[in-house]
Design a protein around this nucleic acid. Sequence first.
DNA 1: ATCCAGGAAGTCG
DNA 2: CGACTTCATGGA
Length: 279
Amino acid sequence: MENSFLNSDIHIKDLSQFDPKQILTCGQVFRYYERENSFDIIGKNLICRLNYHSDHVIIHTNDTERAAAYFDLDTDYNSIKTRLTGIHPVLDEAIRFGHGIRILNQDPAEMIISFIISANNNIPRIKGIIERLCERLGENKNGFFAFPTTEALASADESFYKSIGAGYRAAYIVKTAKVLADGLIFERDTPTDRLRAQLMKLDGVGPKVADCILLFGLHRTDVFPVDIWTSRVYRSLGLGEESCRKRMAQKLVEKFGSLSGYAQQYLYYYYRENKLIFI
DNA sequence: ATCCAGGAAGTCG
DNA sequence: CGACTTCATGGA
C-alpha cells in the first residue's frame, strides 16, 4: 500500500479540542495539503496524514512520539478555553468558532525562516515560496520534502532566494541562515522577553515575527503577535485607540497574560476566516 | 492602474 | 524613542 512509511497511528477521539482543518488553516503552519477526507502535514522532517471521520481522527505518521508532541496532545485545550471565556464577547465567539484549534510545537529554525518570508506578504505567496525552498534544498522523504537543514539553508546565496520569489527578503534569509547554521541555541529557562531580544537581533526579525517564532516555535504563550488582522481586533476588544502595534501587543499581553498566544490564535482565525474588518 | 498582504530596516526629527 | 518611507512580488 502507498505511504506505508507512515506505519504508526494515533487515534484522536475527543474532537471538541482537535479539528484538523482549524489546526492547519489557522495561520500557524504553511506546509499542509488538503486531500480527500484527510490532510497531509510536514513539520521539519515529521510527516503526518490526518484522516478525519465524523467522530474521530487518525494520525498516520512516521514518528508517533514526535507527532504527539507536535500536536501538543498533553495540553487540555478545553481548560484553556474555559479560562478565556467570559472576558469579552468577541473572544467568546472566536473560541466557539475555532474550538478545535491547537498551538503546534514546530521547529524553531523552520519558524524563523518561514516568518521572515511572511513579512509584508500574503499567505498563498508565502506557501509557494516555502514550498519551492523545500523542493530545492530539502531532503526527499518518500515524495515529501523535508524543511531544509540550517546547513542547506546557509549554503544557498541571495540569488537563489530571489529565484524562489523571496524578493527583498532574500538578503535577510542569507544572513540569518548563516547564524542558524552556526548553532543558535535557545535556553529552556530563558525569560520570554530575553528570547525576543535575542531573536530580534536576527536580520528580518522584528517584533511581530519574533512573537510568531516565540509562540509557534518555542511555545511561549505569553506573547500576542499583532499583525494587520489582530490590529483590527484591538479596537473591538474595547482597549481604546492605539496606532502602534508594539504597544498593542504589550496591552494585550497585560490583559491575557500566559494565555495571550491562545487568545491571539482564536481571534486571528475568527477575523481572517470571516474577513471581519469593520467591527 | 492602484492597492494589499500574518512587517522590517533605514532615515530623520 | 517615535513617526515616516521604502522594500519584491503577484493576485484582486
